[in-house]
Measured scan of single mutants.
Amino acid sequence: IDVRFTVNGLDVTVRVRTEEIAERVKELAKNGVDWREIQRIAEELNK
């Protein structure tokens, strides 16, 4: 599942395995978490 969001004007796409992880990623993006941090968290959750 590809999750797309915009952080500080940057369009970011993170690929995740499940809808649940996708929701977590969207939540982080909404809360203004840095995209590199979101990427790292997504990689952890995908394991």
Rank of each mutant, 00 (worst) to 15 (best):
V12I: 15
E19L: 11
R24A: 12
G32P: 02
F5E: 04
K30L: 11
T13D: 04
V3K: 01
R40H: 10
N8I: 03
G32N: 11
A22T: 01
N8P: 03
D34L: 05
K30S: 12
T13Q: 08
L10C: 09
K47T: 12
I1M: 09
L45M: 15
T18P: 01
K30P: 01
R36Q: 14
V3D: 02
E37F: 02
V33N: 07
D11N: 11
N8M: 06
K30F: 10
G32V: 07
A42I: 12
G9S: 04
T18H: 03
D2G: 01
E23L: 12
I41L: 10
Q39I: 15
I1Q: 05
I38F: 01
T13E: 09
V16S: 02
K30H: 11
V7P: 04
L45R: 02
R36L: 15
A29R: 04
V25N: 00
V7G: 09
K47L: 14
L10P: 01
K26M: 13
F5H: 07
F5R: 02
A29N: 07
W35A: 11
L10W: 06
A22H: 04
R15T: 15
K26P: 00
E44V: 09
F5G: 05
V7L: 05
E44D: 12
E43K: 10
N8V: 04
D34R: 06
L10Y: 12
E19M: 14
N8G: 13
V25E: 00
R17H: 11
I38S: 00
V14M: 10
V14I: 15
F5P: 01
D34Q: 07
L28A: 08
T6C: 10
V25L: 14
W35Q: 07
N31W: 06
R15G: 05
I1N: 02
V25G: 00
N8T: 04
R4F: 12
K26W: 04
E19R: 08
I1P: 02
N46M: 04
V12S: 02
I41T: 07
F5N: 03
A42T: 07
V12T: 04
N31K: 13
I41A: 06
N31R: 10
R15A: 08
V25T: 02
T13N: 08
D11T: 14
T6M: 13
R15W: 07
E27D: 12
A22Q: 04
I21Y: 04
Q39S: 09
V14T: 03
E20H: 09
